[in-house]
Design a protein around this nucleic acid. Structure first.
Lengths: 161, 161
DNA sequence: GGTGAAAGCACCGAGTT
DNA sequence: AACTCGGTGCTTTCACC
């Protein structure tokens, strides 16, 4: 939970790995003018500290046939049901992220589905959860991905300057 | 854009790589009772087909000091400004995803920041864009990540059954 | 489209400065 | 902390099925 101290070298290593986890340590070493062993040790330390929690593939979901994205805002009958409903939502396939929120909605989640028909089925499952009073759906017509890489750049740029 | 035909072996390979891009091909080969060379060829084909678009590190942003998440709904003065405003939003650091949406808002984005003060600065930048009439912020109190892995499981479960 | 073996590297730990 | 170096094991290719 605490802030972890990373120096500029660590950031540069992360910067090279965030776009491609298979970037050879030897390449990183060459670019940063350090030894591959040092890269190895630093990555390991970041893994042990829990900064690096794993690695994942980036897939083109449109090509896989999942081109529908929607956000669903959820109103509850009573706020005391929040955790219960969140747990139920997390059991529903094709819900990719869920949040407890302040503001308009009590809960908020993202759904990725094949098409409108498929999404409707997913959203009906959310509506059916005990304690859900009403939902409000926002359909994404276009997603512009900044995502992880972009966020890391924001963080790095600030730290280096 | 078209659906790409993946067989069960491809799905199993993706299933083993989605959680850990560094899973040795030899391990995958052993488990699926095929040769490591075959795993290599199939992964390469999926890369060439654009199904696999890359690989990225999973990082603990809380430990990096970025524990604030909010969603921002955006109302525009005129819908004709949509693309222009989307482009401006994509230039703002700490905005991680942006969408053009139907429903309540014209645009919709996710912000990850250090704290409320930092988030305020980011949201002010959104408010300042020409054509933005009003924004509505939903602060996440708790994020429960299903994320990529979860989605892939949803897809695989369906395909295998 | 798959195999199996061989060659080429990367990873990773031990020992050193 | 960082470097070098050597053993181990993964990746990648290629001739063959």
């Amino acid at each position: 939970m605490a802030k972890f101290k990373l120096d500029e070298t660590d950031h540069k290593i992360l910067g090279m790995l965030i776009d491609n986890t298979r970037t050879p340590f030897t390449d990183i070493a060459k670019k940063l003018l350090i030894s591959a062993g040092t890269v190895h040790v630093r990555v390991k330390k970041m893994e042990e500290a829990g900064i690096i929690t794993g690695s994942s593939l980036s897939l083109d979901y449109k090509k896989l046939g999942y081109s529908f994205i929607a956000y669903v805002g959820i109103f509850l009958e009573k706020t005391s049901q929040t955790q219960f409903v969140l747990n139920r939502i997390n059991e529903i396939p094709y819900v990719t992220v869920a949040h407890i929120t302040t503001g308009k909605f009590n809960l908020f989640c993202k759904v990725r589905a094949k098409n409108t028909e498929h999404a409707k089925q997913v959203i009906f499952k959310i509506d059916d959860i005990d304690g859900v009073y009403r939902t409000e759906t926002m359909i994404s017509m276009e997603e512009s991905l900044n995502d992880k890489t972009r966020l890391m750049r924001s963080i790095f740029d600030e730290m280096i300057s």
